[in-house]
Computed example of a mutant assay.
Amino acid sequence: MVEYIGMKNLINAVKGSVGLRKGKILFGFEGNNSTELTWGALDDVVMGGVSESSFQIDRRGSEIGGPTGVFKGVVSTANNGGFTSIRTKNFSVPEDLSAYDGLELRLKGDGRRYKLIIRTSLNWDTVGYTASFDTVASQWQSIRLPFSSLRPIFRARTVSDAPPFDPTNVLMFSKFEYDGKLNPTFVEGAFELPLSSIRTYIKDPICPRFVHVGSAGVTRPDRPGLDLSKQPPAVRLNKELGFILTFKLKGEDLVRESGIPYAIIRPCALTEEPAGADLIFEQGDNITGKISREEIALICVAALDSPYACDKTFEVKSVIPFSEPFTVDPENPPPEKDYNIYFKTLKDGITGKELLEQSPVPV
């Protein structure tokens, strides 16, 4: 049970800080779920202009006929104006987006250039971290804005000594760029920008953010047709051991379902032998054997930097049989392994549960 409850608690504890493969949605609509923010207009009327804008929810305006936000209005250069914008209220709790690489906007363009401004201070008139983006008229598109591309701006001027970045969101449409430059796509008149979502993203290639060491054999206690007498003790005695492998498998399922980029390593019997033996990587939960704890630690570290290990579940063992001890000559140690050679052989979606889910064949 601890393998399941403990994993559930651990995932809940780290989920917000290690990042999700699909990103964290900050605003938008997904199926029956929505993440809405309170938006308000901040237009050039604050400096005597006559432009005006609003942010509304169109319940059938998205690309699939569902709800979407719409930033719309009329922009005018009268009275030395020329911009419209909307902004959210300050978040009551600052968002920690450090696990991600940027923001992705899903929107329907109109051929104009817009700016996204992200603020890190609760103060009203302060530095905003800003990126411009161009849109394609009449097309739904995903705009990715890397955090590394954001420029610290204060009153349309770059700030070279700006403080660190911890965002809230502002979406602004303006004829002005930065440092006196003009927006090359600025046109007076009505505009409309449907915006269905703002979410974070992890840039490709995605590597595991969570590496879980499980156990070979987790799918075998309930596997139909398996000769348990030929299986390791933990498989044969799963019930007597408090269904330890059953709960290990449930813990694995929590990892796979969490949305966190992961790797699940299932070692065979662990030994205190040194690392360095040749290895066998398999999938489907069928192999038995032994492997060094030191080797598993090295595999875990390597998996964190390998996109080939991402979202894979696999078993691993040494080629050395149980009956033969493995030792290393300090004067002639084995070469360091490139674990990517093994990771590249792995396939998506293979866990060994496939055999548990097969329907019985009628006779």
Rank of each mutant, 00 (worst) to 15 (best):
P163E: 09
F173E: 02
D110T: 02
T130V: 06
R119C: 00
R112W: 05
K203F: 03
I202V: 13
R119D: 04
D125R: 12
L105E: 01
L195G: 01
P164R: 12
P163N: 11
S138T: 09
L182S: 15
R106V: 09
E177Y: 14
S121G: 13
F133W: 05
T120W: 01
Q139P: 05
T130F: 05
N123V: 14
S160F: 11
L195Y: 07
L105W: 11
S142H: 07
L97V: 12
D204W: 09
S98T: 15
Q139N: 11
I143R: 02
R199G: 04
A156P: 02
T168D: 15
L116P: 08
Y178K: 12
W124S: 07
R157Q: 15
T120P: 11
F147C: 10
G180R: 12
T130S: 12
I153D: 10
K175S: 04
F186V: 02
N90K: 13
S92T: 15
E104K: 13
I118Y: 08
R112P: 02
L150W: 06
P184A: 13
L182H: 15
S148E: 11
T168C: 09
Q139E: 14
L171I: 11
M172R: 05
V187F: 09
D101V: 06
D179Y: 07
S148R: 15
F186L: 13
Q141A: 13
Y114L: 08
N123Y: 11
L97G: 10
F176T: 07
P194I: 05
T168R: 01
G128A: 03
V127A: 09
L116S: 00
A156R: 06
A99W: 12
T200E: 04
P164T: 12
E188N: 14
I143H: 08
F165G: 00
E192V: 11
I198E: 02
F186M: 12
E188K: 14
P94W: 12
E188V: 04
E95Q: 11
F91N: 12
T185S: 13
R112Q: 10
R199L: 03
